[in-house]
Design a protein around this nucleic acid. Structure first.
Lengths: 144, 144
DNA sequence: TCTTAAATATGATTTAAATCATGTTTTTGG
DNA sequence: CCAAAAACATGATTTAAATCATATTTAAGA
C-alpha cells in the first residue's frame, strides 16, 4: 500500500509540522532521532521532498528543514506521490490489467472499495487537518 | 498491503476455483500460463498453499492441483496469511508502536478505517462467495 | 575572508522479495 | 516392475528497496 519510504516521509513531515516554522528549523539528525529512521536514509527522503516543494529548507549553519504555512496546506497524497509515484495507489488489488470501475474484478467491489476510500482520504486530508486533530486531542502522534 | 506473492496466490486459487475439481486437476504450467505468473515461482506458492491445506493436490501422472468443496469455504484472509504471515495486515498505517483503537494515531481515524474495512472484507469473504459473484455476472476475473 | 555547519548530490552496500533451476519422491499406466 | 509425469523440496541467482557513506555546495558568523 505505502512503501516504507512513504511512511517515513509522512512521519517526518508530521514531525516538522509540529516542531518547525520559518524561525525554527530542524536538522536531519533531530528528526531521525525522534522518529527513529536511519539518518542518511531520511536525509535522502527530505531532500527529495524539498526538491519537489513539499517541505522547505535552507543550507548552511542555522539551516535545516521546516514547513511554511503554505506547505501545511498540501494534502497527504502529494507527499506520498513524490516518494512512491502515482501508480502505486490506483491499481487493482490483484494488479489485473482489465479491471476498472466499469468492469470490476472479483475483488474490486468487495475489497477495492476500501482502497478507494483510503485514496480519497489521502486526497482530501491536509497536514493542517492533522495538526488540528492533534491539538483538539482527537488523536496523537507518538513518533515511533 | 498485499505482497506480490499473495496476489499471485489469490489469482491462482481463483483460477483453480473456476477450473478445477476432484476429477479435473490442473498442473502448475496450466495455471501459470493463464494467470501470467512465472512457472517455478508459482510452483513454490502452490506447494506452500497445499502444505497448509488451502488447496489440494495429488502427485504423479494425472495429478495436479484442485479445490475441494471444503477448500472453497475458506476465507481470503486464510490464503493471504499463509503467504504473507499474520502481521502484515493488522499494523498501523505508519507502523507506530503505540497506535491502537484506544489511542489512535493521526492517520488512524482518517485512513486506518479503510484498512480495517479491507481486512474485515477479507475475513468474511470466501472463495465460494467470489465464484457466486462471477456466476451472477456481478464481477469478472480476467486472469491477467 | 575563512571556518564551520548545514543541505545537496551521488554512488556503494546490504537485505529481502522475487525469480530461476534442479534434484527427489510419488503415482499412474503399460 | 519400469518409465514417465506430476508434485515436492531445496538452494542459487537476480532485482529492487532500504540503508550506508562520502564528497560538494551554500550560508552564517567570527
Amino acid at each position: 500500500m505505502l512503501s516504507n519510504s512513504a511512511k517515513y516521509a509522512l512521519k517526518a513531515v508530521l514531525y516538522l509540522s509540529l516542531n518547525s516554522n520559518e524561525e525554527e528549523k530542524l536538522m536531519t539528525k533531530d528528526i531521525s532521532d525522534k522518529i527513529k529512521v536511519p539518518k542518511s536514509y531520511l536525509a535522502k527522503l527530505l531532500q527529495d521532498l524539498s526538491r519537489h516543494g513539499i517541505i522547505s529548507s535552507t543550507k548552511g549553519p542555522k539551516g535545516g528543514f521546516y514547513l511554511t504555512n503554505n506547505d501545511k496546506k498540501l494534502s497527504l497524497i502529494e507527499i506520498i506521490e513524490v516518494i512512491d509515484g502515482r501508480q502505486r495507489l490506483n491499481s487493482c488489488v490483484l494488479d489485473l490489467e482489465a479491471c476498472n470501475d466499469k468492469n470490476p474484478c472479483v475483488l474490486h467491489d468487495i475489497v477495492g472499495r476500501a482502497n478507494s476510500e483510503f485514496v480519497k482520504s489521502l486526497q482530501k486530508t491536509t497536514i493542517e487537518d492533522l495538526i488540528a486533530d492533534i491539538k483538539k486531542g482527537k488523536s496523537v502522534f507518538p513518533f515511533e
